[in-house]
Simulated scan of single mutants.
Amino acid sequence: QGKLLRVAVAAMISPKETFIYYRELLDYIGRKAGRGIQLIQRKTYDEINALFLKGEIDLAFICTGPYAAAREKYGFEALATPQVRGKPFYQSYLIVEKDSPYHHLEDLRGRVFAFTDPDSNTGTLVPRYWLAQVGEAPETYFQKTVYTYSHDNSILAVAKGLVDGAAVDGHQWEYFQHFTPALTSRTRVIRKSEPYGSPPLVASGRLPDDLKTKIRGVLLAMHQDPGGKEILDKLLIDRFLVPREEWYEPVRAMIAGLPDSGRSSHAPSKP
Rank of each mutant, 00 (worst) to 15 (best):
Gln143Gly: 11
Gly34Tyr: 00
Gln143Lys: 14
Phe89Asn: 07
Leu219Asn: 04
Asp225Ile: 08
Pro127Val: 05
Lys214Met: 11
Met12Thr: 08
Ser269Met: 05
Leu156Ile: 06
Pro268Cys: 02
His103Cys: 12
Thr122Met: 10
Asp164Glu: 14
Ile190Trp: 03
Asp117His: 00
Val96Thr: 07
Gly257Ser: 09
Arg6Asn: 13
Ala33Asn: 12
Arg35Gln: 13
Val96Glu: 06
Leu5Arg: 05
Ser154Gly: 11
Arg31Tyr: 08
Gly65Trp: 02
Asp169Ile: 02
Ser204Trp: 04
Lys16Gly: 12
Leu232Gly: 07
Arg188Leu: 06
Lys3Cys: 04
Thr145Ser: 15
Ser265Ile: 07
Ala267Trp: 04
Ile37Trp: 05
Asp233His: 04
Ala203Met: 05
Pro195Met: 13
Asp164Phe: 05
Glu24Ile: 02
Leu258Pro: 02
Val84Asp: 09
Tyr22Leu: 14
Thr64Glu: 00
Glu106Met: 09
Leu156Ser: 07
Thr184Gln: 03
Leu258Thr: 01
Leu53Ile: 08
Gly228Cys: 12
Gly161Asn: 08
Leu131Asn: 01
Leu51Pro: 05
Thr64Pro: 00
Gly2Ala: 05
His104Arg: 15
Pro118Gly: 09
Lys98Cys: 07
Asp117Lys: 00
Arg31Ala: 10
Lys43Met: 09
Gln41Gly: 11
Gln41Phe: 10
Ser204Arg: 06
Arg263Pro: 00
His151Met: 10
Thr213His: 10
Val168Thr: 03
Asn153Trp: 09
Trp130Arg: 08
Glu245Val: 07
Ser265Ala: 09
Leu219Pro: 00
Tyr93His: 08
Glu246Val: 10
Leu94Cys: 08
Asp260Gln: 10
Asn153Ser: 14
Leu79Trp: 07
Leu236Arg: 12
Gly197Ile: 02
Ile40His: 13
Lys54Val: 15
